[in-house]
Amino acid sequence: MQNILGKQWFIYGGYESRPEHLPYGNYGEIPGESYYADDHRYIEIEKYVVRLVTDHKDFVLEDTIEALFESLEIGFAKITDEYVKTEKVYCQEWEVAMLG
């Protein structure tokens, strides 16, 4: 994601920790689930929300990000795709899941 948006434009954190320029992206971890058998953890699912914020709906950038997920075989689902009137920005979010 840093290669797509630039290192200074893709950061860890919530919506509050955002740069003052567009476009930018950020991500936050959703507490994952661990599955156990015979008192040993055998799988952990790590989930993240990846956010892209632009001044307009950017189909090319959206396709580039989804192609990145697919090329890395990262499962994803788009959970937000809307214009945020109060912020005057377009927000797209994906939930991604990885096995740990």
Rank of each mutant, 00 (worst) to 15 (best):
Q2Y: 12
N3Q: 14
I4S: 00
I4T: 04
I4D: 00
Q8D: 13
Y12N: 09
Y12A: 12
G14P: 01
E16S: 08
S17G: 08
E20Y: 06
E20N: 11
L22K: 07
Y24V: 02
Y24I: 02
G25K: 04
G28V: 11
G32N: 05
Y36T: 09
D38C: 09
H40D: 09
H40Y: 08
R41N: 08
Y48I: 05
V49Y: 00
V49E: 05
V50D: 00
V53Q: 08
V53W: 06
T54G: 11
D55V: 06
D55I: 08
H56Y: 15
F59P: 00
V60C: 00
V60W: 01
E62L: 10
D63W: 02
T64A: 06
E66R: 04
F69C: 03
F69K: 03
S71W: 04
I74T: 12
I74C: 05
I74F: 03
A77F: 03
K78D: 04
I79N: 01
D81Q: 02
E82Q: 12
E82M: 13
E82C: 11
Y83Q: 05
Y83E: 04
E87D: 14
K88R: 15
Y90F: 15
C91M: 15
Q92I: 15
W94Q: 07
V96M: 05
V96G: 01
A97F: 00
M98S: 10
M98T: 11
